[in-house]
Amino acid sequence: MRWNSPLKYVFLLPTVIWVLCFTMFPLLYSLRLSFFRVNIGQKDIFIGLENFARAFKDPNVWNAAKVTLTFVLVGVSIQLVLGLLFALLFNRALPGRNVLRTIMTLPLFATPIGVGYMFITIFHEEGGFIRASLGAKIPWLSNPNWAMVSVILVDVWNWTPFVFIVLLAALQSIPEEYYEAARLESSSQWELFRYITFPILQPSIILVLILRMSEAFKVFDIPFSLTSGGPGIATETFSMLTFNTYRRFFDFGYGSALAYLLLIAVAIIVTSFFGRIRQAYT
């Protein structure tokens, strides 16, 4: 067979070159910026690791790290648990199941910044939906802890459906015979879940976990529109802090250093799951 034509390079190389030019070059450029004090219009000054040292002394950076970690850990856990429960709930004979499932996927592609603004009208403390319809007076956006809760809730609304549909797909791929065989040994519902469903779901759960975590670390749009990082800096995530640093204060050097710290964090997460990623994609 002719499965070794030199044409293969024509197919692959343009893309490789494209990605090299448009990601590797900016990455290097940004790494370079992080060692400089940058003022557009003036000559850049090399300052070594000063930007990174400054980051470790900056209370705002620690705050942003804390906010982002809380957001990732709490948010993704809730999504996993809820998504799993919903998947189990929908994995039974339900009238109109496909329609319901389709409705649940609507938030997935919804413009995140639109979602953030939409939820202000839900959480607004004087006349938002929760206040107007349920009567509960909760300081959703004015109390630092509740603001964090609000941001996480919006993310949960946005991304639980993702966990849900992936796990539902995995559930539906489990042959009924497995259960029938197990039932002969009179297993309880819990044991069925513990010894059959869960082990089969496990690879999918880990995959979802990786994908959600690597995305959640970059979160920007939702706190940007929902709380703009407030009150105070209680919901200022790492991406937002970086954005503000270089964009509002033109501090390109320091901003790049912060961006690199975020890159390192994401890289650690991704590489620690590298085995599973490799298995899923190759």
Binding site: V19, T23, F25, P26, L27, Y29, S30, L33, S214, F217, K218, F220, S239, T242, F243, Y246, F252, G255, S256, A259, Y260, L262, L263, V266, A267, V270
Partner: peptide, 13 residues
């Protein structure tokens, strides 16, 4: 792996 890259890193460049 390019997909996992936080886009904020490349904004300034």
């Amino acid at each position: 792996s390019q997909r996992f890259l936080p886009p904020i890193v490349t904004v300034v460049p």
